[in-house]
Computed example of a mutant assay.
Amino acid sequence: MAKQETSIESAHRVKLPEMDWEDLTEPGAYVEIGTGDLYRFPKEALIQGGSPLVTKESHGASRLVQVSKDPYVTTMKARLLCAQHNIEPNF
């Protein structure tokens, strides 16, 4: 029997969800594309009708990429996910 090699590269890479701040509706860990800053949004932060826990005002366009559905993903794993998707982390 021939030994089968396993690649550490994913056979097909999943594109991370990207959105505007206003479109954020799901808890998770997000990285701002322009700055590389990491934001963690627990479900409590996104309750409809409640006061938002995070607000951002800017003249420039700002996009977020969801690196994990877990807002408490480890920083190391979030950095690795950024590296795998060519996003330069700033955390």
Rank of each mutant, 00 (worst) to 15 (best):
Q48K: 15
N86R: 03
Q4G: 11
I87L: 15
D70H: 00
N86P: 00
A11F: 12
R40N: 08
I87T: 04
E57G: 14
Y39L: 15
M19P: 00
S68M: 05
A61E: 11
K43A: 15
Q48F: 08
D23T: 11
K43E: 15
W21C: 09
L64E: 01
A2S: 13
K69W: 00
V14E: 10
A83L: 09
M76Y: 00
A61D: 07
K56E: 06
W21H: 07
F91M: 05
P71Y: 03
I87F: 00
A78E: 03
A2E: 13
P52Y: 07
G49K: 05
G28Y: 05
M1V: 07
L64H: 00
Y72C: 02
P42M: 07
P17T: 11
I87K: 05
E32S: 07
G60T: 10
Y39G: 07
S10L: 14
T75A: 09
G49L: 09
T75V: 11
G36W: 04
T55N: 11
L64I: 02
T35R: 06
R63C: 01
E18G: 02
D20G: 04
Q48C: 10
G50L: 06
P71C: 02
D20V: 08
F91G: 11
S62Q: 11
L24N: 06
S7D: 14
S51A: 12
T6N: 11
N90I: 03
S51G: 11
P52K: 13
K43L: 08
Y72A: 07
M19V: 12
G49N: 05
Q84A: 09
S62N: 09
K69Q: 05
G50W: 04
Q84E: 15
G60F: 03
Q66T: 01
G49M: 08
A45I: 04
R13T: 12
A78T: 02
E26C: 10
N90D: 08
E9P: 05
E18C: 05
L81H: 00
V54K: 13
L81N: 05
R40A: 06
A61R: 09
V54D: 01
K15A: 15
I47T: 14
Q66G: 01
P27R: 05
A61S: 07
I87A: 06
W21T: 09
H12D: 08
E57F: 12
L46H: 03
A61V: 06
A2R: 12
P42Y: 07
G28F: 04
A29N: 04
